[in-house]
Every structure is written in C-alpha cells, then in structure tokens.
Write a protein that binds this DNA or RNA. Structure first.
Lengths: 186, 186
DNA sequence: GTCTATAGATCGATAGAC
DNA sequence: GTCTATCGATCTATAGAC
C-alpha cells in the first residue's frame, strides 16, 4: 500500500486545512499531527522552522496555485476577457463556491499578520496588478483599471467573509456573480 | 484623580483593541491585563466566564454601536437615502478609514467562529436586512435590494481585508467610495 | 474590587531510540 | 524518517490575602 505522506509537499493540503479551520495561532501541533498523521518528529524533520515554516510553505503553495491558474493567464499577452472569465471559474473552484475561506485573507485580518505580511501583501498586490493588466488590455481606461481590480478582489474577499459569517455559502456565489457582471459591462 | 476603570464597560475598548490586534485565540490574558491595566482577579470579577465572556461582551458592544449608528437609521421610516449616506460616514469613522479591522468579520474568518457564530451571524444578517430595507424604501426593486445590500456589505468587508493585506489603509477609502457610488446610482 | 501566587493543562520544540 | 518521552515556557483559571 502506498504511503499517504511520502514527502514534504504531501503534508501541505492537510496543513492548509488546519490553518484555514483554526487560524495560525490556534492551530496547535496536536491538531496538526492529527490532521497530517505524522508525529512531531516527522513534522520537524520536514519543517525545521516549526509551525511558522509550515504556514509559510502553505502560503507559498497557495501563491503557486494562483500564479499558475489565475495570475499567469491574466498576464498572458492575449485573450484578456477570456482570462478574466476563467479567473472567476478558478476562484469559484478554489473557494469551493463559498464553503472554503481564503487563508491569505484570514491571515491578513487575524494573527500571523506580522509573521506573513510580505507573503500576504505580495499575493494581493500581484492579484490586483494582474487583473488590472488584463482590464487595460481588454480596453479599459488605464486610470480606472487598478481601481476596478481592487474593487473586484475586495468583492471576492468580502463575499467569503459574508458567506462565512452568515453560514450561507450561497451568498458567495450570489455576490461574486454581481462582481463579475460589473466587470463584464463596458 | 478619577479611576480609568470604574466598571465593567470601561474595559471594553481596551479589550476590543486586543482582540482586533491579535484575534481571539492569540489574545492571551497576559496581553489583556497589560491592555486593561487590570489583574486577572479583577478581570474574572467582571467576566466570570473568562476570555470567552470578554469577547462576547465586546461583540455585544459593537452590535450596540452599529444598532444605534447604522441599523436604526437605516430602519427608520423616513430619509432612506440620507440614512445610507450616513451609514458610509459611520463606517468610515468606525473603521478609521481602513486602519482598523472589523472584529466581527475577523472572527467569522478565524478562530472563535464556532464560539461566536450566533453573534457574528446576527450582526451581518441585521446589517444586510437594514440596508435592503432602506434601499427598497428609496425606490429600489424589492427583488434586487437584498442582493445589492449583500454586495455592499461584502464590498466594505473586502475593502478592510484588502487594506490590511496591502498594508495600505487608503485602499479602503478608494474601494468603499466605489461601492457607495454604485449604490447611489439608479 | 484588586492584587499575587499558583494550580493544572497545553503549548512549541527538542532529544534520542529505532 | 518516524516515533515516544519530555523539557521549559506559557496558557487559562482559581484561591485567598488585603
């Protein structure tokens, strides 16, 4: 039978789930050992920097996923409108239609804000820049593109907060659909 | 010289600041004693339920502030447009133009989500309902008012996330201004 | 009411056997 | 690599003097 955890990267999905579920500070090593099925010894073998390195690795993987599935298409030289559409598809998929929160946004609001400020800032800055880039190439005025991109990313993040607060994942889809429609309008 | 802390309610602003700064789980009693200037004995005298009761009391005070300054005007029988304008003024004031996060939203995303779910849900549900009510009375279509209210509240929350993530409070004002402008349009 | 002292549990992290 | 045992620090909460 194949091992569930064969290398460091195999632990990242479970780690990400724990941090999303409990935040950074409240994600104890006990919870992490249960979620990953690894003892503390193994965890510290993979992550000598401890919990902080675990969270940082999760953020790096998230950034990598968005870079490949969201940022790169938005920055690609052609098809900006199609890239924007696929961005919303990717967002809906990644956030499980509102049932999953954005760990980066949660870290920005909660604890770990100081520890991971650079990674959090880079993630949002690149998202806004990539979307603004696509908006400009799709014919938008340069001056308004950044503002529109900020408003869109904020709308997505706010939709996650709202869905989580209301305990109603469908609020995410409803709200994001409005954000997307506004972006498609001239 | 008058005492700084004369009764339970006097501790709430300092408590709120600690929870906003560190989240619920990472706000230790040591941090709380430093912020309030009270020893543990005094804190447990005021809040026999411990840290959970402290956070719950803070949420109740936040809800009370919004009820008086935001929800009630929105639900008042007249001047819905004026109430909406003053809502945005109150929001900008309360969140210090993006320099202060929304503790309710942060709790919704992070730890304490289970502990305070009812209070978090009530806060957002009432905000959306009150704003939708004002929108209907200002001439909006009933079917679209709730969606527009959700989008607006989400936009405000997302603006807070974005401003915090980018470490740029001015992103809050820029984004909220766009949300407000959209609401004022026919 | 407010304090200090401290209990009892849990934390992150380490050591060392295998 | 993975485990168990355990360290010292820190946590929430309580007890009791004043």
């Amino acid at each position: 039978m194949p091992r569930v955890v064969a290398e460091r990267a195999d632990t990242l999905p479970a780690l990400a789930e724990v941090f999303r579920e409990h935040g950074y500070g409240a994600a104890s090593l006990t919870l992490i050992t249960e979620a990953t099925g690894l003892g503390k010894g193994s965890l510290y073998h993979f992550f000598p920097g401890g919990k902080q390195e675990m969270a940082s690795a999760v953020l790096a993987e998230i950034d990598s996923w968005f870079a490949a599935n969201v940022f790169a298409p938005l920055e690609a030289p052609d098809e900006p409108r199609r890239a924007i559409t696929s961005m919303f598809d990717a967002v809906d998929q990644y956030f499980h239609s509102g049932a999953r929160i954005c760990l980066v946004g949660a870290l920005a609001l909660g604890d770990g804000r100081d520890l991971f400020q650079t990674q959090v800032q880079d993630y949002f800055a690149r998202w806004v820049a990539a979307l603004a880039n696509a908006l400009i190439r799709s014919g938008r005025d340069r001056r308004q593109a950044t503002g529109l991109a900020e408003e869109t990313v904020a709308g997505i993040q706010g939709a996650i907060v709202l869905a989580r607060a209301l305990d109603d994942p469908s609020a995410f889809g409803r709200t994001v659909a409005k954000v997307q429609a506004r972006l498609a309008a001239p």
